[in-house]
Design a protein around this nucleic acid. Structure first.
Lengths: 194, 194
DNA sequence: GTTAAAGTGGAGGCATGCCTCCACCATAGT
DNA sequence: ACTATGGTGGAGGCATGCCTCCACTTTAAC
């Protein structure tokens, strides 16, 4: 665990290299975007051929950039984790409780791979482990700060919190605003008793 | 369908008929048990051939009993819902808050189809609708009673509650006792402010 | 403009799952 | 015990997904 200085932006997690040639870079981006969509829709085992189709490229191009399904999924996931780490840094100045809840709501938003995150939380690969670590390094201090300020109950780990939020996030809510309402209620349970 | 007893037990939801001949009935039960296992492990799209193999019967036998995957899944799901409805009746005598939380914990236990319940909650088929209705008829009064007793916040519907619990349930918790801890925290948010 | 290197994409082989069909088998009623 | 009826189970046709391979196309460096 590195001691995090005030502005110590964590190193970005990189799974595969973005190609340098113009057309290839375009395809790479299109693939990532299509994969993000597909994973959000069908979970971690969305069809790769469908992803290539959505991106408007051949299946061969997909495999050239992402040798396995895992590479592709990890890339999408890493993008989200990297963004979340940045957000945590930006929130360092806010008061403890709003900082924590704001971050968690961003977590819910960014996690487009909602249905798939369950799998990611238990993935054993190096990348998943690195992502978990990065995520926990970013969010952990926010929880700790809120606990030290007496805003959050002590008998809860960051892992508990992440899994609670992930679970609620991974379920579909048909009603507009319902997910938000439920999240708020659950977060009420997270607040310290007074 | 004969009305079962005098004690207003809700009508059981039946998806397909259990065969009468001895060997066939045995196979039917084996299939249901195997399906329950497989769905719990792999979610709603477990392999039907795998299920038949686990049950020690041919794939043909599976299809004879359950014409489609949906019939099979609905049967497993309906079994659980029927059991839960019975539990709710038994809890009518308990005090409001313990009755509600006990029922919810049973809900978590019975829901062996954990990973798959997301899908069931949004299924559009007649059976899924009937199951939802039955579930809500069983659990809804427990929530209402707790709210009337001032134990639970008013700004929460039974649907909110079920989805919250389902979400947390559908996530894997690697640590022993962690799911229970998280559920308890979330339920703290459900309690009325005082 | 030319050209070498990088990139493309889809045909095709393989695996797996779905579901049907039907020759054989077990049960229950006589 | 016998037999008709209901039940069995797996072979096989179809669909879909995975991934490899390579003849062709595009880029960018000169």
């Amino acid at each position: 665990m590195a001691e995090s200085t005030a502005t110590a932006a964590a190193a970005e997690i990189v799974v595969v290299q973005r190609p340098r040639r113009a057309d290839a870079a375009r395809n790479f981006d299109a693939l990532l975007a299509a994969a993000r969509e597909a994973f959000a829709e069908h979970g971690a085992d969305a069809s790769l051929e469908d992803i290539a189709r959505r991106a408007g490229v051949g299946i061969g191009t997909l495999y050239r950039n992402f040798p396995t399904r895992r590479h592709l999924f990890e890339s999408v996931y890493a993008e989200e984790v990297n963004a979340l780490a940045k957000v945590a840094v930006d929130l360092a100045a806010e008061p403890p409780w709003p900082a924590l809840t704001t971050w968690l709501r961003r977590f819910v938003e960014y996690t487009v791979t909602k249905k798939a995150i369950r799998d990611a939380l238990n993935g054993e690969s190096d990348i998943f482990l690195a992502c978990r670590e990065s995520l926990y390094e970013a969010g952990g201090p926010l929880l700790l700060r809120a606990q030290q300020a007496g805003e959050v109950r002590e008998d809860m780990s960051f892992d508990d919190l992440v899994r609670m939020i992930s679970g609620i996030t991974s379920i579909a809510f048909p009603e507009e605003g319902q997910r938000d309402r439920v999240l708020t209620i659950a977060l009420d349970g997270v607040r310290a008793r007074r």
